[in-house]
């Protein structure tokens, strides 16, 4: 409860700074226009102008909000100009990639935990693979997969998958190894088979680690899907809106796509958070 007031203060400050920055960044354009028309701008007129330009350097928050409202609520969902349509394209790639990445990550983690050879040979590469700026690969993956006839959702999902599998592998390896010797001994005294050991001890013990990784993974997955949309030439999706906006100088469109992406990220992370709380509660872990 004592967090709400400070957080509100910070958010309000951000908005005030945003409005002031909009005046500052857009004023040169406003002055130019006034000069061409041979007018003198009063400070009120200046502020009014900087907050309502068509292609401002920094659109004011209410302009972005209006754009989001127009492109979500007032357009048909199937329309190519609807932001919901683009968000859905990005979301579907994100979810598919997240699903693939999570399952691949869990399988790899099980392999690493149960197979010593894999642990020693694969694990260092899993870690090394993340020091590589993989997003640089995105254009190539898209183009190559296009060339062999795979296009649309899957190439983007591949990039999302690559970004989201790493946190899952690392978290799950830690989680599957988290049962203590005493707990393992207990299972052995019950004459538990290896599969019982896995399903009844190791897997349940790893769930808190899994959920922590999933939160990181889903956010990374969204970044992957957005960047994956850039090289396809701005067809559809939030990334495409960003690129198209930057080609044509439609700053309001860029900002609305950006805010939408932020909202989507927040939504996905909080959904994972809710599932986490419910699951852990049912398992009696919180």
């Amino acid at each position: 409860m004592n967090k709400i007031l400070p957080v509100l203060t910070v958010i309000i400050t951000i908005f005030i700074v945003w409005y002031i920055a909009a005046i500052w960044l857009n004023s040169s354009w406003a002055y130019d226009k006034a000069m061409r028309e041979g007018k003198q701008l009063s400070s009120i007129e200046l502020i009014a102008d900087t907050w309502s330009q068509d292609k401002p350097k920094l659109p004011a928050p209410h302009q972005v909000a209006l754009e989001i409202w127009e492109t979500t609520a007032e357009k048909k969902i199937t329309s190519k100009r609807s932001l919901i349509y683009h968000t859905w394209i990005t979301l579907s790639a994100t979810l598919l990639g997240f699903l693939l990445g999570t399952s691949f990550g869990i399988l790899l983690a099980i392999g690493i935990v149960y197979n010593r050879v894999m642990d020693l040979s694969v694990m260092p590469w899993v870690i090394a693979s993340q020091t590589i700026p993989i997003l640089a690969l995105a254009p190539m993956i898209i183009v190559v997969l296009n060339a062999i006839g795979i296009s649309g959702l899957l190439p983007k999902a591949m990039i999302s998958m690559y970004l989201s599998f790493f946190p899952v592998v690392v978290g799950m390896v830690k989680g599957l190894r988290s049962p203590e010797i005493m707990q393992l001994d207990q299972m052995w005294t019950w004459n538990a088979s290896p599969s019982q050991l896995f399903w009844r001890l190791r897997l349940p013990a790893s769930t808190p680690f899994l959920f922590a990784s999933l939160k990181v993974g889903v956010a990374a997955s969204l970044v992957g899907a957005i960047v994956g949309e850039l090289p396809t030439g701005a067809v559809a999706g939030l990334g495409a809106r960003l690129l198209a906006g930057s080609y044509y100088g439609q700053t309001i469109q860029i900002w609305s796509a950006l805010i939408m992406a932020a909202a989507l990220a927040a939504l996905l992370v909080s959904i994972v958070g809710i599932v986490q709380r419910l699951t852990l509660k049912r398992m009696g872990m919180v």
């Binding site: 007031l5 400070p6 957080v7 957005i226 700053t251 950006l258 992406a261 927040a266």
Partner: peptide, 25 residues
């Protein structure tokens, strides 16, 4: 207390999306 939640939130956002705006500026 105010900045930590906001910072945590921003750290999870697709900040790469800021790129076209910053290239413009």
């Amino acid at each position: 207390r105010g900045l930590l939640p906001v910072g945590n939130f921003v750290a999870a956002l697709p900040v790469v999306g800021m790129a076209p705006i910053l290239v413009m500026w």
